[in-house]
């Protein structure tokens, strides 16, 4: 298949940036979206142009490194990561717009690469348990209700790619933050720090310049891992509880 891609090109953080149009011929429909970009980059290199910078790592859909906005949708038309999106999801002759995540807290580094270290700092503000772990305890030593275990696991599948922020019309990272709150808050190991965690992470979230949640739901629709929307209600529940206990 032959396609046209319009890609956001930006030399560095200070450059203004613009959309540039490229034609890509003989694209196999079995290629992943990133492989198509690889082919385009080979073309660009051969013709002496600067290849397009984009983030990627495992290419298995589990690391959260890749992610671009394709035709206005984070990770493109399928519910998966950009590396697991295949060209068969597009028509032959399609014009595909490729842009970086847009958020005040995710400044563009180059082309399609954004700085997502704000997520790391949110995790550092409480998204962990500080219990010494040692060797694994017996599986039945601390009973966890099945519903809680399932729910915690659903939330724990967050790979921190940032699609929720890119999709959110408010540039809010509430889904990312709430996934960690829910994951740890539903398990016994997460209880001692449950209240300080939600206060710390929400404070850091706001400090990084992410927007406020207005419960639109675009985040959960764009999420390649399908983190459910009720994690945000769980965060709000925990936050109200912690504030009521005077933990702020």
């Amino acid at each position: 298949m032959n396609i046209t891609v319009r890609v956001w090109r930006q030399k560095n953080a200070d450059d203004k940036g613009r959309m540039v149009t490229y034609g890509v011929e003989n694209v196999s429909e079995h290629m992943s979206f990133l492989e198509m970009l690889d082919v385009l980059n080979e073309q660009l290199t051969l013709s002496g142009d600067d290849p397009i910078a984009f983030d990627h790592d495992c290419r298995e859909g589990i690391c959260g490194m890749c992610g671009v906005v394709i035709n206005g949708i984070a990770h493109g038309p399928e519910v998966t990561t950009t590396c697991q999106l295949h060209m068969r999801s597009f028509e032959d002759g399609a014009v595909i717009d490729v842009e970086p995540w847009r958020a005040g807290a995710f400044p563009v580094v180059k082309d399609l690469v954004v700085d997502r270290s704000a997520f790391d700092r949110i995790i550092q503000a409480g998204g962990y348990i500080s219990a010494p772990t040692g060797s694994a305890p017996d599986a039945h030593a601390v009973p966890v209700p099945k519903d809680d275990a399932d729910h915690a696991f659903d939330a724990a599948t967050c790979i921190g790619c940032g699609a929720c922020v890119a999709a959110c019309p408010n540039g809010s990272a509430m889904l990312f933050t709430s996934a960690k709150i829910t994951h740890l808050g539903l398990l016994p190991q997460g209880q001692p720090e449950r209240e300080s965690r939600v206060i710390g992470m929400v404070e850091q979230h706001d400090h990084e310049g992410f927007g406020g949640c207005t419960n639109i739901g675009e985040c959960t629709s764009a999420c390649p891992k399908g983190i459910p929307l009720d994690t945000i209600a769980q965060l709000n529940r925990d936050l109200l509880g912690a504030l009521a206990h005077g933990k702020a």
Binding site: M19, V69, G72, R102, G104, P169, N170, G171, G209, G211
Partner: peptide, 14 residues
């Protein structure tokens, strides 16, 4: 939220 959405020249995505 307007600030957080990262607008570029009045538009978020081109």
């Amino acid at each position: 939220n307007k600030k957080a959405a990262g607008y570029v020249g009045g538009k978020r995505y081109q």
